[in-house]
Write a protein that binds this DNA or RNA. Sequence first.
DNA 1: AATAGTAGTTGGCATATACAACTATTAATA
DNA 2: TATTAATAGTTGTATATGCCAACTACTATT
Lengths: 179, 179
Amino acid sequence: MPTTIVGREGFSTTLPILEPAADPALREDAQHLSGALSELIRVLQFRDRDRACCYGISVSQCYALKGVVEAGAMTVNELAGQLYLDKSTASRIANGLVDKGLLARKRDHEDGRVVQLIPTLEGTSICARIEEDLEVEYAELLSDFDPEIRSAITKLVARLAHSFAARVETAGGSCSVAS
Amino acid sequence: MPTTIVGREGFSTTLPILEPAADPALREDAQHLSGALSELIRVLQFRDRDRACCYGISVSQCYALKGVVEAGAMTVNELAGQLYLDKSTASRIANGLVDKGLLARKRDHEDGRVVQLIPTLEGTSICARIEEDLEVEYAELLSDFDPEIRSAITKLVARLAHSFAARVETAGGSCSVAS
DNA sequence: AATAGTAGTTGGCATATACAACTATTAATA
DNA sequence: TATTAATAGTTGTATATGCCAACTACTATT
């Protein structure tokens, strides 16, 4: 199978691409960050696969539940947006949570097309328990670091996530390949 | 479906679990880190889903290819270990890469059971191109940050990944639920 | 009133992943 | 040495994830 290119329209020609040579220090940082992040992703995915099952829900369901619980209520489209998923996927993830009694679907009175996802009591409670578990684990992990470093970590990770989110939302397809 | 518990044996009772109350600042850091990391994971997964296809390979295949290329050669088990996946999954991911001509399988002479995965020239070349793309993107992203922050980010992410990896390897099941 | 747009669901498909069972090979042991 | 146990990898099976496209049911526009 030839390496087919399916990226969306408008990328390398429209984006200001940095020359690879640029600043050597920057280049090195970028290299290291790339490696570190891919390692981080893999290990966290693994951890989450293993963990979420403790409460009988999947990783995606866990994220969705958390989103809805924190928002109080959410449409399917909003959920899809928050999870960076197609609305069909969001709808099915919601299905799973509704089946388990953790979310309820409620038609909107204003707009008959809209479905509001509402957390049930059990959904809220399970979400809180999961959060607590996570918190305990993160606290344990963070306690290895000096206090200043600790708070720097969280701020930087947040900032990083934010930067990626902004980048993903604007960039459309990030594919810079032409063959 | 009742929330079934399927965690492995030996968790909350054998692990030194921090009391949730502990240090308030630590607790808050943990909370923030939890939120920031889950956002980071989601957005990166999204980005990767969209990107890897540029070279006709999937996200997992990309990680696997990178691992093998960097190591020069790797057994299926080693690959599974590095990716935190079951060996069957690793084997199938390798299948995909072999089908695409990016990896080759070679039986080990020392031990007839072992299969060495070897990158082909094309595999190596594609991997390098992907790495370069990533690097450019990361450089672009990092250029938003001050130089000191920049290098701090990469070091912290690396350290974080390392901590998680250590934790995942020792902790077995991280499930701290009893009902 | 007819047309266009939007929210959500469902169908179809491909990939991802785990676990269990299997094959082939090597190591241990009786 | 012959048998048993262990190991590396593959394959079977089942489920989850996720996209796109087609569909339904509403709402907005003209």
